[in-house]
Design a protein around this nucleic acid. Structure first.
Lengths: 258, 258
DNA sequence: CAGGTTTGTGCGTTATTTGAACATTCGTGC
DNA sequence: GCACGAATGTTCAAATAACGCACAAACCTG
């Protein structure tokens, strides 16, 4: 056992998890050769790990393509049920999304991304890129991401600004670290983040902090197309709804340690 | 490599997946000792596998308790995005759930259970046990489960009736194999399943088949509390909505091979 | 404080995993 | 039809990871 000297895990299992993570991007199917390139593992190793995923029912193979099966949802459901998302989170998002006439998503920090953990979309909501529970979005160009950073210790924020790739998603994407730092600080100060067209062209997003949730920090957000929310009244209305939703999500026992 | 002779996977990875699956039931936390008992693995083995899950970010440890982290949602999101749930499935369920004034869930067969793959709950819907995407329900005492069996080859149905545990969930649960077989056949004949209080006391559930979806068979269903739907008109109304939803979910390319 | 439960650690042994080499299949372009 | 490239399938010797047992430590409860 070479990779950790003190607490020793199982490196083959760790490799297997790396293979599984290749499917997170939402690709319709991947090949073993592609996974070998992505992970840097020998293709015989990848083959054996993929066979295990097929045997365990997590992957199915069509010709050369491997794709995830619904089985992968089962452990995710375990997490959602353990944290009572079906009763304590989803109904709250549903009620406030309807009041908002749009969609509300809830996300937490996951490695260097924001990960959607819950979502409610009303029929009136805009048709987005298709994000779902489990989707991840970048931290720097999104309202949810900036609010997660705004809710983090200062050192985390600085490390994020230093290490995260500055990718241009639209013509409006801000890739200047100093400017981004100022925007995140402003979000921390004013208690919400607003991003206009920096991640999706023509889309304005708002996000507020929920606070501690299931041992981590959560944020909720919404977005609208075709509006910049320069209008204080409309922005205030939406923020009021988001803030009340956040308060409902915190609940009396939400921040109690478990 | 002893467990398979022809196609050889990675047995350590397979064990690790078994450990991960212990968290599917939605328990708030599990101990290594508990996992060792559940899986039959030596506790040193379990310890190493759990350490790997912690190191990889899938588990967090609080005292003796291990619990899943949101990271477990990421591969699930990959599946949902690969199959366009956010744009092709969720908006359809949302629209029809609103028309129904309740909730609609979509499920597929996963091992010996029905697994929720999508769901929409309107504010007016009854507060259920808290099922979410990723939750699983038994096949025999539920409308969704019976409709999945009704949509399966006859041999699968017979095998299910023979091998699945006949558990009594309520006073009304039917545990007689012959009677269950007749109910599943009736569901196949009439194109829908109805279950009254056999899984949740006082709750009536309806389910219809979607047909082929992402290489598997899917079903959608709904449930109401405090009504038995003996009234033909109300049952017909709900079935009409479910059938139209199923048709929308099939779409022009839903059953096309990929 | 005793007992039970759970975890943490070390280590010899063994099983598993690795990866290279060779073979096969399939699709594509000429 | 053939050559080529890409991807997979198979075998096996060697190396390494994983196993599981024994002992130790920590913690909780009565």
């Amino acid at each position: 056992m070479s990779d950790t000297d003190e607490k020793k895990g199982a490196s083959t299992f760790a490799k297997g998890l790396r293979v599984l993570e290749c499917f997170e991007g939402g690709a319709r199917g991947l090949t073993m050769a592609g996974i070998s390139k992505t992970t840097g593992m020998d293709r015989a190793t990848v083959r054996r790990l993929c066979l295990t995923l097929v045997e365990s029912g997590y992957l199915a193979q069509s010709g050369h393509e491997l794709h995830l099966t619904p089985r992968i949802l089962a452990p995710a459901g375990g997490y959602l049920m353990a944290n009572d998302f079906g009763r304590a989170i989803q109904p709250v998002l549903t009620a406030f999304a309807q009041e908002l006439g749009g969609e509300i998503s809830m996300a937490v920090r996951d490695r260097d991304r924001a990960l959607y953990v819950a979502q409610s979309v009303t029929p009136g909501a805009r048709l987005s890129i298709g994000f779902v529970v489990g989707s991840s979005i970048p931290l720097l160009p999104t309202a949810i991401g900036r609010m997660l950073l705004a809710s983090s210790p200062h050192a985390d924020r600085e490390r994020a600004l230093r290490r995260l790739p500055h990718i241009r998603y639209t013509d409006a994407t801000d890739t200047d670290p100093a400017s981004l730092d100022a925007k995140i600080s402003a979000a921390a100060d004013q208690g919400y983040a607003v991003v206009r067209g920096e991640f999706e062209a023509g889309v304005t997003a708002l996000a507020v902090a929920v606070g501690n949730h299931a041992h981590t920090t959560a944020v909720i957000g919404t977005s609208v197309a075709g509006a910049t929310l320069e209008d204080d009244a409309e922005r205030a209305r939406m923020l009021d709804i988001l803030r009340r939703a956040a308060r409902s999500l915190r609940g009396p026992d939400r921040s109690a340690p478990r």
